[in-house]
Simulated assay, not measured.
Amino acid sequence: MELFIQTALGFPFAFFLVLLALVAVYWLLAGLRVIRVSCFDHDSLRDDHLASTLISLGFSGVPASFALSTLIVTATPIAFALSLVLQWLPLGLLRLPLGFLAIWAAFALSASPSVGACHALARRFHHSRRASPRWLLGETVVVRQASDNEGRCQATLESDADVVVTLHGKGPGCIAGERRVLVKHVAHEDVYRAVPAEEYLDAHARLRKLHLLPRHDI
């Protein structure tokens, strides 16, 4: 029992206790409607580094706050198991660097099940009475019809055909059957900007591309 108490109150698991407390306070305030569930979401992915990172990991169609909360809750038991191992071993000065490694490992191991849980609940968020159009950013849509004279067209979510959105682009018009990714919501028009799916690069693809450029240039 003493080992479990020391593990729960020691590093690195104490870090997760703080995160869990913040998650509990956040959802309590959201339940009381003191803050909005979508308070971490923005109208565009361009300057929203948090949302862009989460989408690159596979979290799309749900609020960023929900994705983060799911990731933290899922990572907590993994972090406790890793912390228990570290607490049991006589590591000495290695305890601190291995503690940070355990934090990273807990999040890495929890990413896949967290993404699966968010995908399973995405349809509920799509049809929620409190749904925000920002939650759809990063989702792939299928164009239903070619753009009209004003550059507008209708599209449906690839993962949920019941959700219909309006696209209004500044560049070339949309083509029926084309797959696009929602990257910006224009609130005053209630339309989305979208780019062709084949041109959309997530954060990991961008990093790999930047890493390979110097090799090609040599």
Score class of each variant (00 low, 15 high):
Ala51Arg: 11
Thr53Ile: 10
Thr53Gly: 13
Thr53His: 05
Thr53Tyr: 10
Leu54Asn: 01
Leu57Asn: 04
Phe59His: 01
Phe59Gln: 12
Gly61Arg: 00
Val62Tyr: 01
Phe66Trp: 05
Phe66Met: 15
Phe66Gly: 01
Ala67Met: 00
Ala67Pro: 04
Leu68Asn: 02
Ser69Ile: 07
Thr70Leu: 08
Thr70Trp: 03
Ile72Met: 05
Ile72Glu: 07
Val73Asp: 05
Thr74Leu: 05
Ala75Asn: 02
Ala75Tyr: 04
Thr76Phe: 08
Ala79Phe: 00
Phe80Glu: 01
Ala81Arg: 03
Ala81Thr: 10
Ala81Val: 15
Ala81Pro: 00
Leu82Cys: 02
Leu82Asp: 08
Leu82Gln: 02
Leu84Ala: 13
Val85Lys: 13
Leu86Asp: 11
Trp88Lys: 08
Trp88Ala: 13
Trp88Glu: 09
Gly92Cys: 11
Leu93Cys: 03
Leu93Asn: 11
Leu94Val: 09
Arg95Asp: 14
Leu98Val: 12
Leu101Gln: 02
Leu101Ala: 15
Leu101Trp: 13
Ala102Asp: 12
Ile103Trp: 07
Ala105Gly: 10
Ala106Gln: 03
Ala106Phe: 09
Ala106Ile: 05
Ala108Lys: 03
Ala108Val: 11
Ser112Pro: 08
Pro113Ala: 08
Ser114Arg: 03
Ser114Asp: 06
Val115Cys: 04
Val115Gln: 07
Gly116Tyr: 09
Ala117Asp: 03
His119Asp: 14
His119Tyr: 06
Leu121His: 05
Arg123Glu: 12
Arg123Met: 02
Arg123Lys: 15
Arg124Gly: 08
Phe125His: 09
Phe125Pro: 00
Phe125Gln: 11
Phe125Val: 12
His126Tyr: 15
His127Ala: 08
Ser128Gly: 09
Arg129Gly: 15
Arg129Lys: 11
Ala131Gly: 10
Pro133Cys: 14
Arg134Lys: 14
Arg134Trp: 00
Leu136Met: 04
Leu137Glu: 04
Gly138Val: 01
Glu139Asp: 15
Glu139Met: 14
Val141Thr: 13
Val142Gln: 13
Val142Lys: 05
Val143Phe: 01
Val143Ser: 05
Ala146Ile: 01
Ser147Asp: 11
Asp148Pro: 00
Glu150His: 15
Glu150Met: 09
Cys153Pro: 10
Cys153Lys: 00
Thr156Asn: 10
Thr156Ser: 14
Leu157Met: 12
Leu157Tyr: 06
Glu158Ile: 07
Ser159Gln: 12
Ser159Asn: 14
Asp160Leu: 04
Ala161Met: 12
Val163Ala: 06
Leu167His: 06
Leu167Cys: 10
